[in-house]
């Protein structure tokens, strides 16, 4: 291959269009190298952001062939190989307001992030002269979420955020919420957590794993969402559909080893909601034999061992 083409989505404040730029191929280059080359040699009006070129500042997130990537960290050779092409389509990150070309507006996201108070709220009673020392284990708990560089790649293809941007936090906000909720030096975990539960749609994550996949730093927002759910139940927030749904699985496995699909809606939504909303679906399934009201899973072989695992895990966690 001797030439590469970038098909770039342009926006001048009113008008949107795709513009193609072709330049000579060079080995071992990044997506950002191509953008800079275009701006330097072909079109000084092309707007994008970048600074460190070392995957640290988080300013160069763009969408390549529909997938968010950090331009300075993403190898052109790898992409050309993955997509078997010499033309890449480059767009601004999705789920952001676009300012110009590849430049997106961070202001509303950062404003929203403040809801989870992404800073330490230390205990006033602590003796400041001793400082706030953490054990190695305590540090490891926050180590992954602390790696977030706020590049925004996790938001771009987030499934729930794409359909429900107002009712669902950006994955990096959950990561911040989790990071401060579980920090051993913090004294107000619920102030970081409750907004995720009440405003952020904590239980609405569909577990598509786009955030974990797209993060260029190995941060795992989906795991942090799991962690926040666990913390929220620990703080007593168990009477919501998400928590009840999770407990339906937890209880069924202890009882028989397997899920009882018949009782799942009842356990998750309660009798009234199930009767008022699920009847058409249930009839549809009954008609096709997909729901068998007479099927009650019998305990699996070795269920005593399974129940023992529950008891031993609980004992281990208490110790």
């Amino acid at each position: 291959m001797d030439k590469i083409t970038y098909r770039i989505k342009r926006f001048d404040g009113t008008r949107e269009w795709f513009q193609e730029y072709t330049f000579p191929y060079e080995k071992n280059k990044t997506v950002l190298w191509g953008l800079i080359k275009i701006r330097d040699e072909q079109d000084p009006t092309l707007n994008f952001t970048s600074a460190c070129r070392s995957a640290i500042c988080g300013s160069c997130g763009v969408r390549v062939n529909g997938n968010a990537a950090l331009a300075c960290k993403t190898s052109l050779d790898e992409l050309l190989e993955i997509y078997q092409t010499s033309t890449l389509t480059i767009e601004p990150l999705s789920n952001y307001r676009v300012i110009r070309d590849l430049v997106v507006d961070w202001e509303p996201k950062l404003e929203r992030m403040k809801e989870v108070k992404p800073w330490l709220i230390a205990s006033e009673e602590k003796d400041l002269s001793l400082g706030f020392i953490q054990s190695e284990e305590e540090f490891h708990k926050i180590s992954n979420p602390t790696d977030c560089i706020l590049c925004g790649c996790c938001v771009s293809e987030c499934t729930q955020h794409s359909t429900n941007s107002q009712g669902f936090y950006e994955p990096f906000i959950f990561t911040k919420s989790y990071r401060f909720t579980i920090d051993s030096r913090d004294n107000a975990p619920s102030q970081h957590l409750t907004p995720s539960l009440e405003k952020g749609g904590l239980w609405k994550c569909v577990r598509c794993m786009q955030c974990v996949t797209k993060c260029p730093k190995g941060v795992r927002p989906a795991d942090h969402i799991s962690g926040l759910r666990k913390e929220s139940m620990g703080l007593g927030h168990q009477q919501n559909k998400g928590a009840r749904h999770a407990y339906a699985f937890y209880d069924d496995i202890r009882k028989t080893g397997r899920l009882n699909e018949m009782t799942l809606p009842l356990k998750t939504e309660g009798l009234t909601k199930t009767l008022s909303r699920r009847i058409p679906l249930a009839l549809r399934l009954l008609r096709k034999g997909k729901l068998n009201p007479l099927h009650f899973p019998r305990p699996v072989q070795g269920i005593e061992g399974v129940r023992k695992i529950y008891r031993l895990v609980q004992k281990e966690e208490r110790s």
Binding site: R207, S226, R229, K230, M233, G242, H245, A246, Y247, F249, Y250, D252, I253, G257, R258, L259, V300, Q301, G302, I303, V306
Partner: peptide
């Protein structure tokens, strides 16, 4: 004697 994999829910508890 296989049991449910947890279906991405049990880990939340």
């Amino acid at each position: 004697g296989w049991t449910c994999c947890g279906a991405s829910h049990v880990q939340d508890i």
